[in-house]
Amino acid sequence: MQYEGVLTKMQTEFGSPIQYYMIFENSFLNVNQLLDKTIEISFSGYQCLNCNKKKKIFRQGFCYDCFYSSPAVGDWIMRPELSTAHLGIADRDLDYESRVQLQPHIVYLALSCEVKVGVTRKTQVPTRWIDQGASEAITVLELPNRYLAGITEVALKEHFSDKTNWRKMLTNDILCIHLPDEKARLEELIPDEVKEFFDLAHQDHYVFDYPVLQYPKKVTSLNLEKTNVFTGKLKGIKGQYLLFEDGTVFNVRNAEGYVVTISV
């Protein structure tokens, strides 16, 4: 059986275990059903997720031109503290930026290997944490816009990492930490502008169960531009990664915009 199309990040369904889906233009694939089966991934080209042209992908599924023009990949995406829609100031497109920035955002702590701090739109809970491969996550604050969430994240980055060590996450090398205890000490660390939103009694705490039969001891990342065809036995799915028996791992999200054929 073959599935062909342009890769986008896997869609997920929160459950025990989490369910993963690859969505193509004319079909979809429940990736969990491929566990313990040998699959082949073949790379044949590119298609920009924004303009749909068959142009080389630059970053995040976008070609070079779209990456530097689309409001969907402005600097404020990766650095929420740069958001300006609350001031009525545009970065690239004020209508788009207002829709995304001026909605409830969550500042959270997540445990993927060690504790990290991050920001996501409330509508992306718990998807954001699943995509990161977090074992657990807890809400620290719910804030009315992206800017306030961003300045809070900046303050907390003095005490926590804001990045996931993907190798440790994929080998399941995780510290034993009680997230509610970590949250309890944050009230004195957050900016004065957001202290009114801090609620220690509200414990929105998630624990995640990933469909993994076997964690690798050591990982090697698959680059489809260098290895156009890869064959391996699927042993797990975590974050946006496929984990194979030989220790190869494939970051689906990093390959957004790649045209592939998946053969089972």
Rank of each mutant, 00 (worst) to 15 (best):
V31I: 15
P144T: 13
Y241Q: 05
T123R: 14
A149E: 09
K238I: 08
L34Q: 13
L109K: 10
C63N: 03
V115C: 09
D36A: 12
C66Q: 02
I39M: 12
F230D: 10
E25C: 09
S70T: 04
Q11Y: 08
N228A: 07
D131S: 06
A72S: 15
V212C: 09
T8C: 09
K217S: 12
F198Y: 15
K9A: 06
C113E: 15
L82N: 10
L49F: 07
L87T: 03
N52Y: 15
A85W: 05
L175H: 09
E142M: 15
Y64K: 01
I138Y: 10
F28Q: 08
E4K: 15
L200A: 14
L200C: 09
S161R: 10
T227S: 07
V6H: 10
R121N: 11
E245N: 05
R185W: 12
D131A: 03
T164W: 08
T120Q: 06
R128V: 00
Y108M: 04
I174C: 12
G61R: 01
P126L: 13
V117K: 04
L243Y: 00
E196I: 14
S69I: 03
W129M: 11
L200W: 09
D91N: 01
T120G: 06
I237N: 02
V117M: 05
A90P: 06
F58T: 00
D204M: 11
E40P: 01
N228L: 03
G133A: 03
L111E: 13
R253I: 01
L156H: 00
I237E: 05
T139S: 12
V260T: 14
C63W: 00
V194L: 05
P126N: 13
E187I: 14
V260F: 12
V264R: 10
M22D: 02
D93L: 02
D91R: 01
V229F: 07
R121A: 15
V31C: 07
D181G: 06
K218G: 02
K116H: 13
N228V: 03
E193M: 07
Q103W: 03
K37H: 14
I39T: 09
S161F: 05
L49M: 13
I130C: 12
V260S: 14
P17R: 07
D75Y: 00
P144F: 13
K56N: 06
W166H: 14
H178M: 06
E142I: 15
F230C: 12
D162W: 06
Q132W: 12
V31M: 13
